[in-house]
Amino acid sequence: MFPASFDYHKPGSIEEALELLTTLGADVKLLAGGHSLVPALKLRLTQPKHLIDLAGIAALKTVAVRENRLVLGAMTTHWQVESSPVVKAALPYLCEVAGLIADPQVRNRGTIGGSLVNADPAADYPASILALDAEMVCVGRGGRRIVHARDWFQGLLTAAIEEHEILSEIRIPLLPPRTAATYLKLRHPASRFAVVGVAAIVTVTQDQRCAEVRIGITGVGSCAKRAGSVEQQLVGHRLDATRIEAASAAACDGLEIDGDMHFSAEDKEQLCRTYVRRALLRTMHLAESGAFQPTRNAP
């Protein structure tokens, strides 16, 4: 399969990329790792006149901890997240998530920014981005804008980025003390996409009550969502198996789940409830055994 013809541009800075983005007209696509876009070009699902390759922009490749946040440049590859000593020290949970994406070759190329802008309904990162309450920094010629995770995923393949903007970095707040985290995924046996993926992040008090919980779900709906009704039933309580089971019954609230060629809507709903329950059980198991994520510095 061959993509249709296009012109290729490789700017060396964000400014230069923004300039191209505004002057080349409407028929432009930004190229990050290319592991969603190149297949789409080959299938001619998209036929842009211009591609702007972001690979030459060093500013999009930051991996650092700043002001109690893990800062990931949009062009950070999944393998870089999986293997980075910085990420491992600050938020090892995210290394695990990155290591579950696709396969090693794809992880060498695919980027976190590309994944978040593409907003594939079965991508892995979105569940964690929601559960971690991350912020996306979008730059345009008029300056920069910060979008919170809860506003980012707007629908099928739709993220809250404007036409002439570039996602430059993702900022992930480091976690408070006594916080455990799990990402549990049912991998599609062929594609390795998430049939359902659940990110559960729970902060517990000394007596093992749930002080704070955020649950992100990917795979089953048109885009990733927080499981708000489940979260509400957990805060303030001791999370034993009974409470978790009861709360997980609400896992599909607010998710519009449709069947597809592999699974009926009912099957997906059942999987969604099951994976939310199991992710919470595993997180509580981690919390009880003291396997917490590293803690942010005291303010």
């Binding site: 190229l31 390759d53 090693p104 070759q105 060498n108």
Partner: peptide, 13 residues
């Protein structure tokens, strides 16, 4: 130094 799928990369990349 990284294993990649060359069917999913443009030569210009």
């Amino acid at each position: 130094g990284l294993a990649v799928k060359s069917c999913t990369i443009l030569a210009v990349q």
